[in-house]
């Protein structure tokens, strides 16, 4: 037992860096995926056919390719075309591409829960497609999307562990390195598992809080 405490104490900053890298990957990945996913969702509901085609192709590609495959292609493929980006950012890029395909579908189904009458009323007042989305459709759609977005967030958090396989030193990668040195797989992976569990639970709590917040700000329609 003392040996294990000793191991953790000796490698505290190493582990902490791993945790921070995981947090960084997840937050950057989620924010990027949310932005791009929203844009792609707008493409998919736009009245312009080429945009819809591009949006659909994007989703069908990135949703249906394993994240690990994507990460390997990014890490080993981009240098081949002369793009040398740090490993951490390769991980973020992979998470953004894969995450945005899922978030796009969350946003699109959120948009579809808003009745056609809302967009007709906005159009009848002379609002452009962009204004309609920004002021009328998306603000209402995001309220219905809080819990599905928490799912997407957790997906990205857990998916970030695959970045370990291509050499990003996130908590999973750090854990594996310590395991090779100390051969304490069970303890170490229980620990890294707990890190993911804590963050995922935290995200769930923040989601519930956000949901309460947006529903009190529309007391009216909550009735």
């Amino acid at each position: 037992m003392n040996q294990i405490w000793q191991m953790l104490a000796d490698n505290f900053s190493f582990l902490l860096n791993g945790v921070l890298t995981t947090v960084g990957l997840t937050i950057l990945g989620f924010v990027g995926a949310l932005l791009i996913g929203t844009v792609v969702a707008v493409f998919r509901v736009s009245p312009i056919t080429p945009l819809r085609v591009v949006g659909t192709a994007y989703v069908e590609f990135f949703r249906n390719v394993p994240l690990l495959t994507l990460l390997i292609l990014i890490v080993f493929g981009l240098p081949d075309i002369g793009l040398l980006i740090p490993l951490f950012w390769c991980g973020v890029l992979g998470l953004v591409l894969a995450g945005s395909a899922f978030i796009c579908e969350t946003v699109r189904s959120g948009i579809n829960t808003i009745s056609v009458g809302q967009s007709e009323a906005a159009r009848a007042l002379g609002m452009s497609f962009g204004t309609q989305l920004r002021l009328i459709i998306l603000p209402q759609a995001f309220r219905t999307m809080v819990q599905p977005l928490v799912n997407n967030f957790i997906g990205i958090l857990i998916g970030s562990s695959l970045a370990a396989a291509v050499g990003v030193s996130d908590i999973t990668n750090v854990t594996q390195q310590l395991n090779i040195r100390y051969a304490e797989a069970v303890v170490l992976f229980l620990l890294s598992g707990a890190v993911y569990l804590v963050f995922a639970l935290g995200a769930g709590r923040i989601g519930s809080w956000l949901e309460g917040l947006v529903s009190t700000s529309r007391i009216g329609s909550a009735r």
């Binding site: 009745s115 009458g117 809302q118 007709e120 009323a121 906005a122 009848a124 007042l125 002379g126 009328i136 603000p139 209402q140 309220r143 529309r218 009216g220 329609s221």
Partner: peptide
Amino acid sequence: AQVGMVFQAFNLFPH
């Protein structure tokens, strides 16, 4: 913008 429209279902913006 020059033509006002009133709908059967009102379609006010609930937010």
